[in-house]
Every structure is written in C-alpha cells, then in structure tokens.
C-alpha cells in the first residue's frame, strides 16, 4: 500500500499560534523501507511553528514511522528531513533532538523510581541548564491529575495512562519547541484527555505533530493529514 497525504483537512477547532517563515518540521519526499518492505513512499509534510498537525489513518501505514524518522530513529532511503530549517544528519541529529519532545504510544520507562526517571534527562549535557524546570513537577502533576506519591513508585508498575501522562510531563519539563506525540490519548480516560487537550491549547508557540485516531484530538487540530 502506498501512503499518500491529504493536506486540505484543517480541523475546525484550530489551536492557532504564531507562524514563522521556516517550518518547524519539513519532510521532503521520504521513502522508508524496512526488511525489504515499503513503509513510506515519497512522503512529504511540513509543520509550521506553532501549528498543530495530526496524522491519522489505518494501522500499518507508517504514521509512527514518520515520527521516528523525524527523531532519526528510522533513516529514509530517499528524501530529507529539516528541523527548524536544518537538515537532519548524523552530525546535526544530536543538537536537533533538543528541539523535540517525544511522547511514545506505550512509553517504556525502564526501571527505578519515577523521581529518578524524571531527573535523569537533566543529567545529560544537553539539558544541564534546564534543571530548574524540575521545580514545576508539583504544578504539572496537579495539572495532569497525577499523585505526588507516584514519585517514589517504581516506574514499571505505573499504569499505561500514568506512563503516558508522566512521559508528557517529562517532555514539558524539557521545554522543547516541537512536540511529537504518538497516540497520546490512547490510554487516557475522559478527564485526563480533557486535561491534555487543555494543555495543548495553552501552548500556541509550540509545534505539535501527533499521530492519533482520537476524534477529540482530530477536531482540535489546525490540520489533519490522512494517510491512505
């Protein structure tokens, strides 16, 4: 199956936001193959600064592969990817990832207490100047209906919904300009989904590229890209 893009389906809600001349993400004619199988063919997409774009479509069409390509986890055999106008390459990927916040569909947080997991990214050299953001943990836990008692809990024992919200909290703490969200509401109940929507509405200056089938998220997108 050859995925194609539909750029005309703007969502009715519209998060709005600032638009800059350089797109936050620009994917130009990428083709991805894995073990001889075509995953994406000649796929293009751009996400402007502050724009919220949702990728949707049936399973197996390569939606998550688009996010993984932007992160440099999957390397297209053809085409190119630009982040904030800079080409993604082995030399630039390490710096460009510091513009990106990724929330996977089923986060695997590894092991250890949650507090340690949240603090770990701030031990990386790229994030060493952001350590003061950890002070926002109580505010963000409150916002996403997470108990502060969870901080001492082993991350592997958290529920799927808790892991998704914790991964989002970590992404927010890292203060990135571009959010890559893979089915971010798939394990959330209605109240938690509403909280996430409220948060996404509150960040007009951040670009979001999400993969989702959630009607609520599709309705709020500036633009919906349907893979078929």
């Amino acid at each position: 199956m050859k995925p194609s893009t539909d750029f005309g389906a703007d969502g009715p809600g519209g998060w709005g936001g600032n638009r800059a001349s350089v797109p936050s993400i620009e994917i130009k004619n990428i083709t991805v193959r894995f073990e001889g199988k075509m995953i994406l063919e000649d796929f293009s997409l751009h996400v402007n600064s502050g724009e919220k774009v949702v990728l949707t479509g049936e399973s197996g069409l390569g939606k998550s592969t688009v996010l993984r390509s932007v992160l440099g986890f999957v390397i297209p055999v053809e085409g190119s990817i630009f982040i904030n106008g800079q080409p993604l390459s082995p030399e630039t990927v390490w710096r460009l990832r510091t513009f990106l916040a990724y929330v996977p569909q089923e986060p695997n947080l590894g092991s250890g207490p949650l507090r340690e997991w949240l603090e770990r990214p701030f031990t990386y050299r790229a994030n060493s100047g952001l350590r003061k953001n950890l002070d926002r943990i109580p505010e963000l836990f409150d916002r996403f209906l997470l108990s502060m008692d969870l901080l001492e809990k082993e991350v592997s024992t958290l529920s799927g919904g808790e892991k998704q919200r914790v991964a989002l909290v970590s992404a927010i703490l890292l203060d990135r300009k571009i959010f890559l969200l893979d089915e971010p509401t798939s394990a959330l109940d209605d109240s938690n989904r509403d909280r996430m929507m409220d948060y996404l509405r509150s960040i007009p200056d951040r670009a979001v590229l999400a993969v989702s089938h959630d009607p609520a998220l599709l309705a709020l997108a500036d633009r919906v890209v349907r893979l078929s």
Binding site: L71, G72, F73, W94, R97, T98, L100, A101, Y102, P104, E106, P107, N108, L109, G110, R120, P121, T123, Y124, R125, A126, N127, A167, S170, L174, L180
Partner: peptide, 22 residues
C-alpha cells in the same frame, strides 16, 4: 530488549555515551 526506553533517552537529548551508561 529495552529498545523503547533506550530511544526515549535519545529523544530526551542524551548523547550516545550518555544513553548507554545504564
């Protein structure tokens, strides 16, 4: 085995040497 956790660390800004440390 921990591929998801490993690439998540990379997405959080870890250099390769930092991501492999644990």
């Amino acid at each position: 085995k921990s591929d998801k956790a490993f690439v998540h660390a990379l997405s959080q800004g870890a250099r390769l040497q930092e991501a492999v440390r644990p």
